Simulated assay, not measured.
Amino acid sequence: MTIEVDVSKRLGKFELDLSFASSGKVTALFGPSGAGKTSAVNLIAGLARPDTGRIAVGGTVLVDTSKRIFVPRHRRRVGYVFQDARLFPHLTVRQNLLYGRWFSRQRSHSVEFDDIVAMLGVGHLLARRPGGLSGGERQRVAIGRALLSNPALLLLDEPLASLDDARKAEIMPYLERLRDETRVPIVHVSHSVGEVARLADYLVVLSAGRAAAAGPLDELLPRLGALGGFERHETGSVVDAVVEHDGGEDGLSRLASPLGSIRVAGSAGRVGRPVRVRIRARDVLVATQRPDGLSALNILAGVVAEIGNGHGPSIDVRVECNGVSIAARITRHSGAALDLKVGKPVFAVVKGVALEPGGPSLS
Rank of each mutant, 00 (worst) to 15 (best):
T2L: 12
V5M: 09
D6K: 07
V7G: 05
S8D: 14
D17C: 06
S19I: 01
F20R: 07
T27A: 08
T27K: 02
L29R: 11
P32W: 08
P32H: 12
G36M: 10
V41C: 08
N42R: 15
A45V: 00
P50V: 05
R54I: 08
A56S: 15
T60C: 13
T65Y: 09
T65D: 06
S66D: 15
R73A: 15
R76W: 02
R77D: 15
A85R: 00
R86F: 07
L87I: 12
T92G: 00
V93M: 00
I116R: 02
V117H: 08
A118W: 09
A118T: 15
M119L: 15
L120K: 01
G123C: 03
L126W: 03
R129Q: 12
G131S: 14
S134A: 02
S134V: 00
G135R: 01
G135E: 01
Q139V: 04
I143G: 00
R145Y: 09
A146D: 06
L153C: 10
L154A: 00
L154N: 00
L163R: 01
A166T: 13
A166R: 14
E170S: 04
I171Q: 04
M172T: 10
P173G: 08
E176G: 02
E176H: 11
E176D: 08
E176Q: 14
L178K: 03
P185N: 01
V187S: 08
S190P: 02
V193H: 06
V193G: 11
V196G: 05
V196A: 10
D201A: 05
Y202D: 11
V205W: 09
G215V: 01
E219V: 10
A226I: 08
G228Q: 15
G228T: 15
E231V: 09
H233S: 14
D240T: 11
E244V: 14
H245P: 03
D246Y: 06
G248I: 09
G248P: 08
L259V: 07
G266W: 03
S267K: 14
S267R: 14
V271L: 13
P274Y: 15
R276C: 02
R282L: 13
V284M: 06
V284A: 03
V286R: 00
V286Y: 02
T288K: 07
Q289M: 09
P291H: 04
S295P: 07
A296V: 09
A296W: 00
I299A: 07
L300A: 12
V303Y: 09
I307D: 01
G310E: 07
I315W: 01
E320N: 12
V324F: 08
S325M: 13
I326R: 10
I326H: 11
K341W: 04
V349H: 04
E356I: 11
P357E: 10
P360Y: 12
